[in-house]
Design a protein around this nucleic acid. Structure first.
Lengths: 108, 108
DNA sequence: CACGAAGTACGACACACATCATACTTCCCA
DNA sequence: TGGGAAGTATGATGTGTGTCGTACTTCGTG
């Protein structure tokens, strides 16, 4: 369903903090975001962002992240994928993503 | 049950990021933390931290926050209350609390 | 001491949601 | 043009957890 390759200016706005936290407070989704965050390009095909999950479950998680304003669905090479909306996130919640990623890195 | 006034060095450690997010990703708990965060003393009696909630529900939320390492149960004047574990949190996830509070403040 | 205020413990309940299986759609490419 | 790979949609399911009511504990105060 997601109209693929939505122009950036038509993406959903970043959700309010509480919803944003809900979106990130799932191990699967947090890992998806982490993988994008450590990627310089901040984008990857769907299947690079999870493991050991049913595809439809993954789709569900992507949907949550997109609706929370965290991800931007894009084409990555030949297949669908997602880009981390770094700058938008940084505007909405300055330092939040960095703090989270740093804390996760510290945990190993 | 909570042995009231646990010495700081016997408090549960701050939970891993994912659990920490889970603890904060509830509107009631996030508001509790916010109220403590804007208080210079960072502490308050239980009943100052919520409204329109059953007392037992509030107790439940406090428990979650204490177990996540966010709050320290303490006596505040004559009644029980909680203190925000600012410095411990800052050590475990530098900048996280600040980023969250700033983003919330911006939302009004 | 007895009362009331403030929290906690416990059990019940309902709803949210993470997960899966299956079927369907797209689109690349041989 | 026909496979197959990659995602999506939908419905079923089970668990987690936010909520409440009620009963119990503590403690300060009249």
């Amino acid at each position: 369903m997601p109209p693929w390759e939505i122009p950036s200016d038509q993406l959903p706005p970043v959700a309010p903090v509480q919803k944003l936290l809900r979106a990130l407070a799932d191990p699967v989704r947090l890992e998806m975001v982490r993988r994008l965050a450590v990627d310089p390009a901040a984008e990857a095909p769907c299947s690079d962002l999870y493991e050991g999950l049913n595809k439809s479950t993954a789709t569900h998680h992507f949907k949550v992240l997109v609706e929370a304003g965290v991800l931007h669905p894009v084409m990555v090479g030949p297949s669908r994928g997602h880009r981390l909306r770094r700058s938008t996130l940084q505007e909405a919640a300055p330092g939040l993503l960095d703090a989270l990623m740093a804390a996760m890195a510290r945990e190993g």
